[in-house]
Design a binder for these strands. Structure first.
Lengths: 233, 233
DNA sequence: TATATTTGTTAAGAATTTTTTAAGAATTTC
DNA sequence: GAAATTCTTAAAAAATTCTTAACAAATATA
């Protein structure tokens, strides 16, 4: 839990500084940004574990920044704003924020909420790290998530968009079993009420591309009645 | 994967009912409890994904209940209380709660916070299991709830879907006795009017896989006339 | 527009799991 | 101790889940 790096975003430098001091006392490392655009840059440049985000800011406001961050990252976001109306809270949370604190805030409440969010996030294995390296290697498979390319034993293998997304999901979580529904929801981005065997057919096609013998897969294995997984070697 | 199941704990049945209706409208399944002890029972018996917990309750209050739940489970807990003082918020969060809503609450804020917590929790596949370690260890048994795998004395043992679910139920609640009916209802997700010996046959097969001598089981024991349990070591 | 490529659907059959059945063993109750 | 109940076990029947191939539909590319 210690050593977490927190990004504080507020156009009021006095407030940002005060929060920095408060968090430093708790043992956190703080990076500051004074508007949404700076915040986005800071996230790319640093390994951030939590974001404290003001709503009213020049250039790019807090809500838009939240949306932008959520396109790619899953870091906890606590919105911090003077607007105390409920509608703003709801808006913030539905944009993808994880919590909401109204100014003026009680310093202890702030640190408590920060701790709570970090506890949960770091438990998931700090998914920020996995995103840094763009390659996932499992045995003879090497998936490059920047180039959207797969190498099988050193040879480039062409994947279609759907095949790539399924394989990325599985290879990013080796050993973990995903049901067909979950794969469908993650890859197609819509809920799967009727599970046709669409996912299964894709699995078959991926197997043809990555396995020596698709009938006896070494990598992409089925777990009967539960789902599919990539074998962790 | 069905929709999320939420446990609402409040000694005021009117409030509990109101929250139930609100959450039902959002498509969540709701289970109610009217004090902390009932809540703990409900958590064991059902597959809960989120808990809405009142603080002031008879028998076992919300803060103590939070502590108790956190001993074994990592389900998101949102504390819901009339006390609006900051000190209580901090206390709740430091006990292991994930969020805090003060009564009277705005219905939309409640559902927004519920959504927010569930989003985070369900993301890496937490289905009401212990997310912190994803492993349950009892003696030489080690059940991995992400990989849907069982290790017996270090060796991987294949389980079928039903076998896995039964064993997960029992191992997640070591020492607690489950009747065949309760196992059936929990695993098959339907009420058991006439319990054939289906469950017993599965118990037999699990024993064959985890016990040295299935006829004299060390782990999966019968409690005559009542049910089965996993011995707590 | 024509062509190639990707994606979705269908259906048959193969593999595996789950349920049923029924007989025998263990435990409790009378 | 006998009877009733509850649990164990094995095997066959039924049901489910997965694989596969071929084709149709949608989408992208030339």
């Amino acid at each position: 839990m210690d050593d977490a790096r927190i990004l504080v975003v507020d156009d009021d430098k006095e407030i940002a500084g005060a929060i920095e001091k408060l968090l430093n006392l708790e043992g956190y490392e703080v990076i500051k940004a004074y508007n949404g655009l700076e915040a986005l840059d800071a996230i790319v440049a640093n390994n951030i574990q939590l974001i404290l985000l003001d709503i009213m800011m020049p250039k790019l406001d807090g809500l838009s920044t939240t949306l932008k961050i959520r396109e790619s990252k899953n870091i906890p976001i606590i919105i911090l704003s003077a607007k105390s109306e409920d509608s703003d809270k709801i808006l913030g949370l539905s944009m993808g924020a994880d919590d909401y604190i109204t100014k003026p805030f009680n310093p202890q409440e702030l640190t408590a909420r920060v701790r709570s969010q970090l506890r949960r996030y770091l438990q998931l294995g700090g998914m920020g790290k996995a995103l840094c390296s763009s390659q996932v290697v499992i045995g003879g498979l090497c998936l490059d998530t920047d180039k959207k390319q797969l190498m099988v034993d050193g040879d480039l293998v062409r994947l279609t968009a759907k095949e790539y997304k399924i394989l990325e999901l599985l290879m990013s979580n080796p050993g973990i079993v995903f049901s067909a529904e979950r794969i469908y929801e993650a890859v197609w981005n819509e809920s799967a009420y009727s599970v046709e065997n669409t996912v299964m057919v894709h699995i078959r096609r991926i197997r043809e591309k990555i396995e020596i013998n698709p009938k006896e897969p070494n990598y992409l294995k089925v777990v009967w009645g539960i789902g599919y997984k990539i074998e962790k070697l």
